[in-house]
Design a protein around this nucleic acid. Structure first.
Length: 931
DNA sequence: GCAAGGTC
């Protein structure tokens, strides 16, 4: 069997189709992985890298005293399978193979992915021949020629890729751990560092600094309005920007009629058709349509997977010779583009346009299949249409413009006006994404005299550089060689998810700045694009076999060690700098009580806003737990309290904007305050004026302090505090009820717990006790179904009974036994006969009596007489001695309080029968037997 | 918990 391994599933399929020719390809899924077989060949696709380098075991604990971040530099590495299904299948097939061909992409990573496959094969089949097919596009010609000229894997090329992996891992992981530990950040708040992300972040930070430090310069623009045959014409002073106000004023004053046309120059301008799309230019064009980089890529990948466009991750801007452009035009026929295609065919430029970059792995992005707007939906169609039109534009002639430049002399001051007119639209006919703006001048001839209608001197300011948009940043990253076509947009996503940058255009956060500063000051290597450039040079040398992998890695290790020398010497300082700079990120504004900063605090899953004056100042505002979303500070501030607004953000759900935390705090506590009988508006205002907002604050105060704060007598203050305590208790029970209902009736879509508890409250059900006695109709009204209502009532009763018994002093172990015996309510204990309770629970009758006594006295009821175990045992024997009475009957008699011959003799058979269900006649028999 | 690079 000949095993062929491709880089991805879709390539595997296409390679199989091409190689099979007329033969039918059998597509079979094995263990969830597709294989394509024909003849004796089987083609399998990888998923890019199917293994991952990581440190050998022992380095997982970040805080280890032995394996410090620095030790990661020299730590051994292992390759771990990340796609187990594929790895297993490859090895299974490799055992049976007598030839293996690696057919991954033709670039460094492709060679490395190929080597990973090679090693997987070798591990299970040391003898099999393994060769390599190299092709720059998956077209029949390329593939056939590649398989006719099979070569060997290029281990030097793969080694270059391995160096990148090693260097990225050791620099990234060690620095990430070091910085995170120094700044005491863990979990979701780690501070990541990397060869690509850190220089990218630094560019955004530097741009922000430029903007902040920008000093605007004033300048003046001078223009005049003239007209020819009633058509207004604007001419600008040829000096352009005047930086000297005096000079501008003088030129303005000197601008006088006669205005003489000194020269008219006509010309023609070519407006080149755009080059084919690579990933970056595609993202830039898509961003003009309002799509973010990540979105544009997601849509393009979708189109690619469904066969509408070619592979969207490419650096190539030159169509390979093997690409049949006419065939593509044919494919696109029969839809909305027909007219445009016909036009392109008719006016086709001799050679398609080409961009600066040419690479071998994939062709530029182009359409591969016809589609309709209906089939794709709005967004995908937008992207598809863009790609089709771009393709058509690359085959279309240039646009041409007629240009004209008129120069004027206004009594010695020189002016000029320019005009342009589209002569032939060319590619712009089929690619209407950038507007062709014409500026038509009337016909003006040299020597003519024109009137001056007005002279305008405009004062302007120079502008700071613009922040990076995502697409602009991707362009700049590419210019600096940062990242690849596949990863650039992901890197930006990473900076956003680490909360280093935010907004569009991108702004750095305080954390982003702090980390960049710290790295800039102590580990500058990692914040500069230079590192990538050097790495690439070294990779190049490895490819040319001029340096070895080990040599380059050793050099990189040495550099990283030197970086760590500096870092470790300043660890504390670095940590403090970051913490100090980022503290502001959590600061929401001044504490209303003491004026110190209020800060958002996260402790475990709980979060709140506390005062930095703690413990002297105990002011705090509670926030919903972080399961609702992590609290972050917004830029807006509350005019009344001067505090930043707060928002809860949670992945995958809409953010919950709380707004001013103090406004929200006050608002949400008013209802609770009103639960205090003495609370009147005036009192509430006085409390608020003293920054007392919650009942729990009042409940926790001393009467003297409260009296002083709101100007009531000590006695009244005491009363208020008691009222607050009561309100607090009611609130506590409500919250308990809410949690209880939530536990029994779990939340699900379309069932609002807030609604349920509100409705219960309106019906006077405010705690679990009230719930246990509630009418099922009330639960139904609150939106709880029949089954749920029964379950809820039973659970509530059970819980109340349990609490009552526990309060009375029944020990927990016994409580369980009463529950198991089904006799666990206070009434059961007070009213059921002790022998019955004993036999149902297996508890000694004397102990039962003790419990019954506890419960009865707790409830103020009389305790029944004690029965000892001996008495009970004797009585049982007496009863069993009576013919017809067995264990079951004894138990039933217990229920009626009959436990021996004497109690049976005195019993009223009619009553006993009604309680126990034993026929009266039989009871008469038993009693008769005794007599 | 860490990088960057493949791919889905």
């Amino acid at each position: 069997m000949h095993l062929i391994i491709a880089e991805k599933n879709i390539s595997a399929n296409r390679i199989a189709q091409i190689l099979a020719g007329n033969e039918k390809v059998r597509a079979v899924k094995e263990g969830g992985v597709s294989t394509y077989s024909f003849d004796t060949k089987t083609v399998v696709g990888l998923k890019g890298h199917v293994v991952e380098v990581d440190f050998e075991p022992g380095y997982t604990n970040w805080r280890s005293k032995v394996h410090t971040p620095r030790t990661l530099i020299d730590a051994g590495t292992v390759k771990k399978p990340t796609e187990k299904k594929i790895v297993n299948l490859i090895q299974k097939l490799a055992k049976k193979a007598d030839l293996v061909t690696i057919a991954t992409d033709y670039d460094t990573e492709g060679e490395l992915i190929g080597k990973e496959a090679y090693e997987l094969v070798r591990a299970v089949n040391p003898a099999v021949r393994i060769n390599r097919a190299r092709f720059s596009a998956i077209t029949p010609a390329e593939i056939r020629s590649a398989f006719d000229n099979l070569t060997d894997l290029d281990f030097a090329l793969a080694a270059a890729g391995e160096v990148r992996q090693m260097v990225d891992l050791m620099w990234g992981a060690s620095l990430t751990r070091f910085i995170s530990l120094a700044a005491r950040r863990g979990g979701r708040n780690i501070l990541s560092v990397g060869r690509v992300q850190s220089p990218t972040l630094a560019m955004i930070v530097n741009r922000e600094r430029e903007i902040e430090n920008f000093v605007p310069q004033t300048y003046w623009m001078l223009s005049l309005m003239t007209e020819k045959e009633e058509q207004p014409v604007e001419a600008r002073h040829t000096a352009g920007r005047f930086t000297d106000h005096e000079a501008a004023l003088a030129a303005e004053a000197g601008t006088k009629e006669p205005l003489v046309v000194t020269d008219v120059k006509e010309g023609q301008k070519n407006d080149r058709a755009p080059a084919p799309f690579d990933t970056t230019t595609f993202i830039v064009a898509a961003s003009r349509l309002g799509l973010s980089a990540a979105n544009a890529m997601r849509l393009a990948e979708d189109l690619y997977m469904n066969g509408y466009i070619s592979y969207p991750r490419t650096d190539n801007t030159v169509y390979p010779k093997s690409l049949d452009l006419n065939a593509i035009l044919d494919t696109l026929r029969g839809g909305v583009f027909d007219a445009d295609i016909a036009w392109v065919r008719q006016h086709r430029r001799p050679v398609p346009t080409r961009g600066k970059k040419e690479s071998t792995d994939h062709p530029p992005i182009h359409p591969t299949g016809a589609a309709t707007r209906e089939a794709l939906g709005q967004d995908r169609w937008k992207v598809y249409e863009l790609i089709v039109r771009r393709f058509l534009a690359t085959l279309s002639p240039d646009a041409t413009w007629a240009t004209v430049r008129c120069t004027f002399d206004a009594s010695g001051e020189p002016y000029a006006a320019t005009g342009s007119r589209l002569l032939s639209a060319g590619w712009r006919r089929v690619y209407p994404y950038s507007e062709a703006k014409e500026k038509i001048l009337p016909v003006i001839t040299a020597g003519e005299r024109l009137p001056i209608r007005s002279v305008n001197l405009e004062e302007k300011q120079t502008q700071p550089p613009a922040r990076y948009s995502q697409s602009r940043l991707i362009q700049v990253m590419e210019e600096h060689g940062l990242g690849t076509k596949s990863t650039r947009h992901e890197v930006i996503g990473k900076l956003i998810s680490r909360r280093y940058v935010e907004g569009n255009p991108l702004r750095p956060t305080l954390v982003g700045r702090a980390v960049t500063d710290a790295l800039d000051n102590h580990a500058a290597t990692i914040t500069e694009p230079e590192m990538t450039r050097t790495l690439e040079e070294h990779m190049q040398l490895i490819k040319q076999r001029e340096r070895s992998r080990e040599d380059v890695v050793t050099e990189s290790r040495g550099m990283l060690h030197r970086v760590f020398d500096k870092l470790e010497a300043h660890e504390e300082e670095i940590g403090e700098e970051i913490m100090e700079q980022t503290a502001e990120e959590h600061t929401v504004g001044p504490c209303p009580v003491c004026g110190h900063d209020l800060r958002i605090r996260h402790i475990g899953i709980s979060q709140f806003i506390g005062c930095t004056g703690y413990p002297e100042c105990r002011f705090n505002i509670s926030l919903p737990g972080s399961t609702w979303g992590r609290a972050i500070r917004l830029d807006e501030t509350c005019e009344e309290h001067g505090l930043s607004h707060v928002r809860l953000i949670r992945k995958g759900s809409r953010p919950w904007t709380i707004g001013c935390p103090l406004c929200s705090h006050i608002e949400s506590n008013i209802e609770a305050l009103r639960m205090m009988p003495s609370m009147i508006d005036d009192l509430m205002q006085r409390l608020h004026a003293h920054h007392i907002y919650t009942v729990s604050e009042i409940a926790g105060m001393q009467p003297v302090d409260l009296s002083g704060a709101v100007g009531v007598s000590i006695g009244e203050a005491g009363q208020l505090i008691r009222e607050a305590e009561d309100a607090l208790e009611v609130l506590r029970r409500r919250s308990e009820l809410r949690k209880f209902v939530r536990k029994i009736i779990p939340p699900r879509r379309g069932r609002s717990h807030a609604k349920i508890t509100r409705s219960l409250l309106e019906q006077g059900i405010g705690d679990i006790r009230a719930l246990s006695q509630a009418n099922p109709a009330a639960l139904k009204k609150a939106g709880i179904g029949d089954a749920g209502a029964t379950e809820l009532l039973e659970a509530a009763r059970g819980l109340c009974n349990e609490r009552a018994l526990r309060e009375a002093g029944v020990p927990a172990v016994s409580l369980k036994k009463y529950q198991a015996g089904g006799v666990a309510s206070p009434d059961d204990l007070c009213y059921l006969p002790i022998p019955y309770l004993s036999i149902k629970t297996g508890i000694n009758p004397e102990t039962v009596h003790k419990h019954v006594d506890l419960v009865c006295s707790h409830l103020g009821r009389p305790t029944p007489a004690k029965i000892t175990k001996a008495v009970l045992e004797r009585g049982r024997k007496e009863l069993l001695a009576i013919p017809g009475i067995g264990e079951a009957t004894v138990q039933r008699l217990y229920l009626a309080g009959i436990y021996d011959a004497a109690t049976l003799r005195e019993a009223d058979p009619e009553k006993v029968s009604s309680i126990t269900g034993i026929a009266e006649a039989r009871l008469h028999d038993y009693i008769g037997h005794l007599k």
